[in-house]
């Protein structure tokens, strides 16, 4: 390979590297300006979903506690075990609403983030968060799917068994069931006693 050809190749690589570096620095600056702490974002969502105020505590409440739970869910092929993990937990400022941001695995498009709210020992509200599921609208459109959890005592939802799923959206249904089950288990393990006084 002659010298001129080598020089041209190195020049091309150099220019591309410099452009990539400058673009990287620019993106870093933009990221620094637009980044929001996901915990703060989750608390803002808690407040928006419930209408209650939630103050972000200085320390993470879930630290040192078990956050990953499994649930046995029904599907067209029988039963299977699905895992869900509590990402964030918050208590409303008046102490009545326990809010959970839970990530349920096993969805068709990956993990399904759900916001689960417990009030007075019962499921108060369920809202879908970030997900890549195609059939989440089918769940929301179903008259019975979310309704089977609402106003049900937490103690009845601990293992996910006996929960119905939406036909055609089985995997999404299972991820949601696991997420609700994880919130219920966390509540029973760490919060129910204090809540009952």
């Amino acid at each position: 390979m002659d010298r001129a050809k080598k020089r041209a190749i190195f020049q091309s690589i150099g220019v591309l590297a410099v452009i990539a570096l400058v673009c990287g620095v620019l993106l870093g600056a933009v990221n620094a300006l637009t980044w929001v702490d996901p915990r703060t974002e989750a608390y803002a969502k808690f407040a928006a979903d419930t209408g209650f105020s939630f103050t972000v505590p200085e320390e993470d409440d879930t630290e040192g506690r078990e956050t990953a739970f499994t649930a046995t869910v029904s599907s067209s092929g029988g039963t299977r075990t699905v895992t869900a993990e509590i990402e964030y937990y918050g208590l409303s400022d008046d102490g009545t609403v326990h809010a959970f941001c839970v990530s349920g695995s096993g969805g068709y498009g990956g993990d399904v983030q759900m916001y689960v709210y417990i009030r007075g020992g019962m499921i108060y509200k369920i809202v879908a968060g970030e997900n890549s599921e195609t059939f989440m609208d089918s769940l929301a459109g179903s008259d019975t799917f979310y309704a089977q959890f609402l106003n049900v005592p937490v103690s009845e939802l601990l293992d996910g068994s006996g929960t119905d799923y939406v036909s055609g959206a089985t995997r999404s249904s299972n991820a949601v069931t696991a997420a609700v089950g994880a919130a219920a288990k966390y509540y029973e393990l760490y919060l129910a006693e204090a809540a009952n006084g």
Partner: peptide
């Protein structure tokens, strides 16, 4: 921008 790497540069 050298001609041979113009498309990667544009994409970046």
């Amino acid at each position: 921008i050298p001609d041979r790497v113009r498309i990667p540069c544009y994409i970046v």
